[in-house]
Amino acid sequence: MNNQPKIDITKPRFALLLDAIAIITFAALLIYLFSQYGSLPDRVPGHYNGAGKVDRWGSKVELFFLPIIGAALWIFMFVMEKFPHTYNYLNLTEKNAEAQYRNGMLMMNVLKNEMILLFCFITYQNMQVASGNAEGLGTGFMPIFLGLIFATISVFMVRMVRL
Rank of each mutant, 00 (worst) to 15 (best):
Gln4Pro: 00
Gln4Glu: 14
Pro5Phe: 08
Lys6His: 15
Ile7Thr: 07
Ile9Leu: 13
Thr10Ala: 15
Lys11Asn: 07
Arg13His: 08
Leu18Gln: 07
Leu18Pro: 04
Thr25Phe: 12
Phe26Asn: 09
Leu29Tyr: 00
Leu30Asn: 14
Phe34Trp: 06
Gln36Arg: 09
Gly38Met: 08
Asp42His: 04
Asp42Glu: 14
Asp42Met: 09
Asp42Val: 06
Arg43Glu: 14
Val44Glu: 07
Val44Thr: 13
His47Asn: 10
His47Pro: 00
His47Val: 02
Tyr48Thr: 01
Gly52Leu: 10
Gly52Met: 06
Gly58Met: 12
Glu62Trp: 03
Leu66Cys: 04
Gly70His: 03
Gly70Thr: 01
Ala72Arg: 08
Trp74Asn: 00
Met77Gly: 01
Met77Pro: 00
Phe78Arg: 07
Phe78Gln: 05
Phe78Ser: 11
Val79Ser: 04
Lys82Gln: 12
Lys82Ile: 01
Pro84Ser: 08
His85Tyr: 12
Thr86Met: 11
Asn88Gly: 06
Asn88Ser: 13
Asn91Lys: 12
Leu92Gly: 04
Lys95Pro: 08
Asn96His: 08
Ala99Asn: 09
Ala99Trp: 01
Tyr101Asn: 02
Arg102Gln: 14
Asn103Gln: 10
Gly104Asn: 01
Met107Gln: 11
Met107Pro: 01
Leu111His: 01
Lys112Leu: 12
Asn113Ser: 11
Met115Asp: 05
Ile116Lys: 00
Ile116His: 03
Leu118Trp: 04
Tyr124Cys: 09
Asn126Trp: 01
Met127Asp: 06
Val129His: 02
Gly132Thr: 00
Leu137Ile: 05
Gly140Val: 05
Met142Leu: 15
Ile144Gly: 08
Gly147Ala: 08
Gly147Leu: 10
Met157Gln: 14
Met160Ile: 09
Leu163Trp: 04
